[in-house]
Design a protein around this nucleic acid. Sequence first.
RNA 1: CGAGGUGUGGCGCAGUUGGUAGCGCACCUGGUUUGGGACCAGGGGGUCGUCAGUUCGAGCCUGGCCACCUCGACCA
Length: 492
Amino acid sequence: MSKAITPREQDYSQWYIDIVLKAGLADYSAVKGCMVIKPYGYALWENMRDALDKMFKETGHVNAYFPLFVPKSLFEAEEKNAEGFAKECAVVTHYRLKTDPNNKGKLMVDPDAKLEEELVVRPTSEAIIWNTYKGWIQSYRDLPILVNQWANVVRWEMRTRLFLRTAEFLWQEGHTAHATKQEALEETVKMLHVYGEFAENFMAMPVIKGVKSANERFAGAEDTYCIEAMMQDGKALQAGTSHFLGQNFAKAFNVTYLDKNNKQEFVWATSWGVSTRLIGALIMTHSDNEGLVLPPKLAPIQVVIVPIAKNEEQLAAVRARMQPLMDELKAKNIRLKFDDADNRTPGWKFAEYEMKGVPVRIAVGPRDLENNTVELARRDERTKEVKSMDGLAAGIEQLLVEIQENLYKRSIQLRETMITPVDTYEDFKKVLSEKGGFISAHWDGTSETEEAIKTETKATIRCIPLDQVAEDGLCIYSGKPSKGRVLFAMAY
RNA sequence: CGAGGUGUGGCGCAGUUGGUAGCGCACCUGGUUUGGGACCAGGGGGUCGUCAGUUCGAGCCUGGCCACCUCGACCA
């Protein structure tokens, strides 16, 4: 592994790629656009997944699993959804290979094994799930259905980026069914807040909650709510979405229930999801030129102990001295690694764990054993100090909390500087090209205006913030009246 | 899909006028080391992306093909 990563200032894209590869999160694979998530990256995802899963269950959801394949006839049932995804669907047409008679040792698709009906590899699961829900729902007593699934999906993207947009990715998708519009709307917003809370509390990543404009809405949704995060380079990243699907899927799949008055009604739906893209968001929110920076709540390793020893006896002495501390930390459920690998020097390990974003590092050597101290280093601020071994476990526990808070504080400060209100299109273009970030501006509410701005500047409306203040103004583009500001940005 | 790039040991790369493959890191052994990516000595490991052509001889020349990456277009 080479030593340096490309500095952020020099080439942000390359910096990001370097972090992903050199921190050992993921690798390129033999398949274009698909990545291998390596153990360290997967451990990070597992921590995210576990925290989210707990939050889903606390809000009454249960997990289930639906098929990877969606028969084409089901996939196309909800027209807007199908159209929206059609261009990026992988399709299974055959179910068998055979040896190629003209090419020894090679296989070919068996033309006799053509499927009667093509199977779409799910880019999202609304279709297969709503086809299933049809059989689950007869009465209002069957509602609500609050199901989530952890799964992989495939979207055959032209252009991929590690974690941010891969052809196959891991995610969770919640699919709920409700008796009333009101309840479905409440669910949509509730899950948006779950995502917001996860982003802020666990990822230490500030997000803006809002609603998508019609142009950016999920195909098949009545409304798409989202959390939008601001990356260090001034580009926005959609970090999670929660969709109010109305009765679109219920109508497409004829999912109805009998209400208390024995009246047949269509079911109301929501769906919501976050993906491994969050790992990309995490990287671009906190990391620096030394590598990854991870919030303690999600870090696979929260504390690493690097022993410094000239020989086996010294190593044994360090280990013995650290054992009580390690026991204490483990009792506090702190994820810990004691790195006694003898083929790496301490200096190498210091650099390596900084690259991997481990929040707290402890170095202990003979000098410390003598003085009853350790060297304690924190990744977020890259500072280190000598601390007494006495009361260290509690101090470390506190430090992890402090680092978590500091990362959030730091990123929200940066984010605040990245929201710029503008009142003219000239200023809009100027801020966009010179500074980036979110631009808060008046918009007349039409798709035409949004489209025109996108064509001219590549910026899109990231969201209409939920906390938008009522303010009369004029659309920066059309000059028509507007009742509040929306957020524009260049986006990933 | 457009532009560019790259394919040589696990990784990163070099390879001159064509003469039968090398460097750094990593790995193995031994020793010295270890407080910010250690050092010495010895050692193992490569059908040079693929197919064809030119040639006595191809990593190198010619042509085709394939793969992956980057940037852009596209993208809920």
